[in-house]
Design a protein around this nucleic acid. Sequence first.
DNA 1: ATGAGAATCGCAATCGGTTGTGCTAAAATA
DNA 2: TATTTTAGCACAACCGATTGCGATTCTCAT
Lengths: 346, 346
Amino acid sequence: MEEHKHVTIYDIAKKLNLATSTISRALKDHHSISDKTIKKVKQTAKEMGFVPNTLAAGLRGNKSKTIGILIPTVTQPFLSSLISGIEIAARKSEYSVIIMQSHDSYDVEVNLAKSLYSNRVSGVICSLAMETKDTSHFKQFSNNNIPLVFVDRVPRDYDTFRVVINNHLAGYKATKHLIEQGCKRIAHLTAGSEFGTLYNERKRGYIDALIEHDLPIDEDLIISLKHMTYEEGVKACNHLFNLKEAPDGLFAPGDILAVSAVQTAKKRGIKVPEDFAVIGFNNDPISEIIEPNISTITHPAEKMGKAAAELIIKNLKSVKDEEDDAKEITFLNTQVLIRESSSRKI
Amino acid sequence: MEEHKHVTIYDIAKKLNLATSTISRALKDHHSISDKTIKKVKQTAKEMGFVPNTLAAGLRGNKSKTIGILIPTVTQPFLSSLISGIEIAARKSEYSVIIMQSHDSYDVEVNLAKSLYSNRVSGVICSLAMETKDTSHFKQFSNNNIPLVFVDRVPRDYDTFRVVINNHLAGYKATKHLIEQGCKRIAHLTAGSEFGTLYNERKRGYIDALIEHDLPIDEDLIISLKHMTYEEGVKACNHLFNLKEAPDGLFAPGDILAVSAVQTAKKRGIKVPEDFAVIGFNNDPISEIIEPNISTITHPAEKMGKAAAELIIKNLKSVKDEEDDAKEITFLNTQVLIRESSSRKI
DNA sequence: ATGAGAATCGCAATCGGTTGTGCTAAAATA
DNA sequence: TATTTTAGCACAACCGATTGCGATTCTCAT
């Protein structure tokens, strides 16, 4: 197999009898290069099939026009949509995207963070692993002016960019909706001992809604899960239905859990939404296909990804404009989508 | 903000009064370095917080320990699972994964291929865009000994690695299953004017099964879609149900289409599977959650991703072992999962 | 025509590992 | 003791683009 040698700016320089510096500048429309030189350089660059070597540029500038994504997994609808949003926004500014999965493991996350740093990514977008209770492995980015954005599962105490929704408000709205449908004993699933704020906030919203409507808070109706999976959802729901005083509603902080609840209820002959109203979270594709389709809270995954990527890129451009108020939390709106699983015809 | 300077092998060398070459070799257990030197170097490297600069290494060796993924989108269950498999296998060998979405556009795919090349990826894994009818933009990889693996949506005529299932056999098995359930008029959805082989193969399997069982091939029952979406599925199914002689079964080459078929049927009062049996493809999560849950063909996405990544990594290691029979098509097994949407109690 | 200033372009260092080659000292063999 | 090996490490070129600074050429105005 023949070894095609890569075409470099040196080759172009030699062919045109110019200095490599001129080539380099011409290729990026530097003002100190004449228009005709620029045109000539670009022309022959194309003819020779020149493709810039990102690595060389990255080494020199100590950055790689690459955004690192560090998330639990890529297979959850919310996260794959997030990735999509990031990728689209990044590409628009000619950034590449490199992806790593923590699988919700703290140790893995620590390793991958180092690997991202090793790759000299220009910025990092992260949604924390379930296990993570300490974020010191992100200091290497902060310490080196590598913009860091946490999305969705954000740490409680790290002073950096965040892109989140108002989880408290969302939890409140979801619960209030159920109350308005006549539910008196609303159950809630949440994450056990969480370091981040996401599920805690939703739970707070749930509790505040109950309080506001003079409903009692029954700890028996609040179940902590280790993982947000279908199986754990089924287990929790069966537990709930076996209570002496079973719930008549459920706010699940994820659509998969809502699906498991609806199906577990049906299996036991419990009518949804008449006997048991359910609202989920995220507006996953499945929520509107399942029967009954599931009320949920919208979660603008792609928009959040776009916002996160743009935060990084903007911050990278304006190195000198110290003015722009960094470290800012971005809130985005969410809506209650009322569908069959919670609309009682009262 | 303080500018932490990166620790380099030069810093380590200075501190230990050794040459940088010794540090470099020691860090990767080169045989020409004594054990105690290795130990000492690794020790102080850790103490000083040394993190290797991937870009520098990549520039020197003209490769980046990175695998590029070029696929239509990351939000389809099959593709996100594929990514997951690739990422896991890649990480095991300390490769990173960089992802790009063609959004089924040929022009975008061409651009992204160039970008991957510019990033000096070690290898490329690609599932072709729907639009793509020409693969000359992949020659840059082949010409430079960058391993290229096509997965699932593979080109018809490119001599390189492939990871696919036996689509003909799968289509045959799916159709045969419907026939065995008593279906006489089985419809089929497929992709219009496809350059690749995927949907054509499934269709061939469908036709061969019909022929083998002496069933007529009715072109009215075969509909070409432009995109494999829920909406197009609904449209196509409504068309089918409006035929004078409506079908009594459907082989859909994707679970989303199967879902759309089942729901369209239900909406029209057509009983599934009694009046209309359906089998999908891929075993997407939704297929077993929907009611009735949907018979389907398994498609081992993660395993295929793993296989593709391993193909690349193995091929990269053995540069000299010209022996290993490259350019080999990997076939993987698939199964018919019989669920409610197609099991008639005959 | 000539000097000031602007417009262009070249030189060479630099980023941080990698690796072929060569040198030196210690270990092995004669 | 003399000589051949071998282990252990140092030198320096190299990958390809970037960029500060200096040098040269060109443009007008005087």
